[in-house]
Simulated scan of single mutants.
Amino acid sequence: MNRISPKKLLLSKWTAVHPMGKQKHFLVSKVILREDPQQGIELIEIEAVYSKKTKQICWRELSDSDHWTQGWK
């Protein structure tokens, strides 16, 4: 399990354990809050470093160490 602080998600770097479409390195480019900001984060947008393609995922998926590792490796 990766330990994640929601306050430090923006611009954090991640490596996909299993590359997605030949993309391995990602950057959190946007944090999407719920309608009520007091409820916290709803989704994040990750951007592939090489192709600049973006994808929205639940921010808690990053805590699964079978799929993501923190930093670029």
Rank of each mutant, 00 (worst) to 15 (best):
residue 1 M to V: 14
residue 1 M to L: 10
residue 2 N to R: 07
residue 2 N to Q: 14
residue 2 N to K: 06
residue 3 R to E: 15
residue 3 R to M: 10
residue 3 R to P: 13
residue 3 R to F: 15
residue 4 I to V: 11
residue 4 I to P: 00
residue 5 S to K: 08
residue 5 S to E: 07
residue 5 S to V: 04
residue 5 S to R: 08
residue 6 P to M: 08
residue 6 P to N: 09
residue 6 P to R: 10
residue 7 K to A: 09
residue 8 K to Y: 11
residue 9 L to C: 13
residue 10 L to N: 14
residue 11 L to T: 12
residue 11 L to K: 10
residue 12 S to Y: 07
residue 12 S to E: 09
residue 12 S to A: 10
residue 13 K to I: 10
residue 13 K to W: 05
residue 13 K to H: 13
residue 14 W to C: 02
residue 15 T to H: 01
residue 15 T to S: 03
residue 15 T to D: 01
residue 16 A to N: 04
residue 17 V to R: 06
residue 18 H to E: 12
residue 18 H to S: 14
residue 19 P to G: 13
residue 20 M to C: 05
residue 20 M to E: 11
residue 21 G to H: 10
residue 22 K to H: 15
residue 23 Q to P: 01
residue 23 Q to H: 10
residue 23 Q to A: 11
residue 23 Q to C: 09
residue 23 Q to W: 03
residue 24 K to W: 07
residue 24 K to P: 02
residue 24 K to I: 12
residue 26 F to H: 03
residue 26 F to A: 03
residue 26 F to G: 01
residue 27 L to S: 11
residue 27 L to Y: 14
residue 29 S to F: 13
residue 29 S to M: 13
residue 29 S to C: 15
residue 29 S to K: 06
residue 30 K to G: 04
residue 31 V to R: 08
residue 31 V to H: 06
residue 31 V to E: 05
residue 32 I to R: 02
residue 32 I to F: 04
residue 32 I to K: 05
residue 32 I to D: 03
residue 35 E to S: 15
residue 35 E to K: 14
residue 37 P to N: 04
residue 38 Q to I: 03
residue 38 Q to P: 01
residue 38 Q to N: 06
residue 39 Q to T: 03
residue 39 Q to P: 00
residue 39 Q to R: 05
residue 39 Q to E: 02
residue 40 G to T: 02
residue 40 G to E: 00
residue 40 G to L: 02
residue 41 I to Q: 01
residue 41 I to P: 01
residue 41 I to C: 00
residue 42 E to D: 04
residue 42 E to Q: 03
residue 42 E to C: 01
residue 43 L to E: 05
residue 43 L to G: 00
residue 43 L to P: 01
residue 43 L to W: 03
residue 44 I to F: 01
residue 45 E to T: 12
residue 45 E to P: 04
residue 45 E to F: 09
residue 47 E to G: 12
residue 47 E to I: 15
residue 47 E to V: 12
residue 48 A to G: 07
residue 48 A to Q: 13
residue 50 Y to L: 09
residue 50 Y to H: 14
residue 50 Y to F: 09
residue 50 Y to W: 09
residue 52 K to L: 12
residue 52 K to Y: 09
residue 54 T to Y: 14
residue 55 K to M: 10
residue 55 K to L: 15
residue 55 K to E: 13
residue 56 Q to E: 15
residue 56 Q to V: 08
residue 57 I to L: 08
residue 57 I to S: 08
residue 57 I to Q: 07
residue 58 C to K: 07
residue 58 C to W: 07
residue 59 W to C: 09
residue 59 W to M: 12
residue 60 R to Q: 11
residue 61 E to Y: 07
residue 61 E to F: 11
residue 61 E to H: 11
residue 61 E to V: 07
residue 62 L to P: 03
residue 62 L to W: 03
residue 62 L to G: 05
residue 63 S to L: 10
residue 63 S to Q: 10
residue 63 S to M: 15
residue 63 S to I: 12
residue 64 D to L: 08
residue 64 D to F: 06
residue 64 D to I: 14
residue 65 S to E: 07
residue 65 S to T: 06
residue 65 S to R: 05
residue 66 D to C: 03
residue 66 D to P: 00
residue 67 H to F: 00
residue 67 H to C: 03
residue 67 H to K: 02
residue 68 W to G: 00
residue 68 W to I: 00
residue 69 T to H: 06
residue 69 T to R: 05
residue 69 T to C: 02
residue 70 Q to K: 12
residue 73 K to S: 03
